[in-house]
């Protein structure tokens, strides 16, 4: 009974929503400040996060460890499944396969993205204040922009569809009607959160973030 796959899979399902789903939402809203309020708004958002108490604890137990468990166990879950969308062309079956494909894309994308941003801050190559200009460099390259859009759409689809599956797997939505309505809500979440991320990317690619980068540079030079 102890230590069986029921608990690992349940934990995997829970961590995908709490905390990782919550993190995606916070991340989307912070980034969106770049679109809504420009470089200053984004800088404020980054500052707000950095002024949270016990930040390293939150990062390690709220993001890194859940992400590693969910990601690595998720690869195992994907490995354990077949795709039979050729024989059973139903919407939910497509979503089943897409959930596994987007999971693997998200796994790669998140590692790469964390390497380009957070790890560079850890390594001391950039500061938190320079994240806006780092994102400008990334988003103004057309290839990177497209790759980021693919990564972001995969991550948000994986979260939205995972939310739908979470509601079923924990026995919250039981009947077909409840599951249909929750699928509409989750589709809405997908569209909304994707829009937040893509608009942020568009904002990052704008010239104001380049100027902000220059301004920050001037500031450090003066300082």
């Amino acid at each position: 009974m102890k230590g069986n796959s029921y608990f690992s899979r349940k934990l995997h399902s829970l961590l995908g929503i709490i905390p990782l789903g919550g993190f995606i939402l916070v991340h989307a809203l912070t980034n969106y400040q770049a679109f809504e309020r420009g470089p200053e708004g984004f800088a404020n958002g980054v500052h707000t996060i950095n002024s949270l108490p016990v930040l390293p604890v939150l990062e390690i137990f709220g993001i890194y460890l859940p992400l590693l468990f969910h990601g690595i166990y998720g690869l195992y879950v994907a490995y354990q499944s077949n795709s039979n969308t050729g024989r059973f062309k139903y919407g939910r079956n497509w979503a089943f396969t897409a959930q596994r494909i987007t999971g693997v894309i998200t796994f790669v994308f998140v590692f790469w993205h964390v390497y380009q941003t957070r790890i560079q801050v850890y390594l001391g190559n950039i500061t938190h204040e320079e994240l806006g200009s780092t994102m400008h460099t990334i988003a103004s390259s057309p290839v990177m922009f497209v790759l980021y859009v693919i990564g972001v759409l995969s991550a948000v689809f994986h979260f939205s569809n995972g939310l739908w599956a979470f509601l079923v797997s924990w026995g919250i939505t039981v009947g077909p009607r409840a599951q249909r309505i929750s699928s509409y809500i989750c589709m809405g979440v997908f569209v909304l959160v994707s829009a937040l991320f893509i608009l942020s990317l568009v904002a990052f690619s704008g010239d104001e973030f380049k100027e902000a980068a220059n301004a920050a540079l001037t500031w450090t030079n003066i300082g």
Binding site: Y90, F96, W164, A165
Partner: peptide
């Protein structure tokens, strides 16, 4: 736990 909700 093996159910992946493909609903086939």
């Amino acid at each position: 736990e093996g159910c992946g909700n493909s609903q086939n």
